[in-house]
Lab assay of single mutants.
Amino acid sequence: EAHFQVQLEQLRSMGFLNREANLQALIATGGDVDAAVEKLRQS
């Protein structure tokens, strides 16, 4: 989780407030914030 701290903060600042969902999306996308946003929008 600490590995994705910067990305988690970016997602939070973009309005994605579900930390667990954000973390799962980042893990699934290897930390790619843009891909994580797409994944979160689809769910």
Rank of each mutant, 00 (worst) to 15 (best):
L11Y: 00
Q24R: 07
K39Y: 08
Q42S: 15
R19Y: 15
A2V: 06
R19C: 11
R19I: 13
H3L: 08
A2C: 06
L8M: 12
G31D: 01
A21Y: 01
M14R: 10
N18I: 06
L23D: 07
R12S: 13
L23N: 15
Q10W: 02
A2K: 12
A2W: 03
Q7G: 03
S43F: 02
L23K: 11
Q7T: 04
L26N: 01
L8K: 04
D32A: 05
A35P: 10
A35F: 04
K39P: 05
L40Q: 04
R12C: 12
R12T: 12
N22T: 06
S13K: 15
A28M: 05
R19N: 12
V37Y: 02
A2D: 09
Q42P: 14
R41G: 12
A28E: 12
E9H: 07
G31S: 04
A21R: 07
Q7L: 06
E1F: 03
E9P: 00
S13G: 11
V37F: 04
A36Q: 00
V6Q: 15
V6S: 15
A2G: 11
R41V: 08
D32F: 08
A28C: 03
A28N: 07
Q7E: 07
E38C: 07
V6Y: 10
V33N: 02
Q10Y: 03
G30L: 06
G15W: 01
L26V: 08
R19T: 07
A35Q: 13
A28L: 08
D32Y: 05
V37E: 09
H3K: 15
L11D: 01
A36D: 00
N22K: 02
A25H: 13
Q5G: 08
F16K: 03
G15P: 00
D32R: 10
L26C: 07
A35G: 12
F4I: 05
A36H: 00
G31P: 01
K39F: 05
G30Q: 11
S13A: 10
D34V: 06
V33R: 06
E9Q: 06
L11S: 00
T29W: 03
L8Q: 09
L17E: 14
S13V: 12
N22A: 09
E38G: 09
A25Y: 01
V37G: 10
I27S: 14
F16I: 01
Q24P: 04
F16N: 14
A36L: 01
Q7K: 05
L8P: 01
N22C: 14
M14N: 08
V33K: 12
N22L: 01
S43P: 13
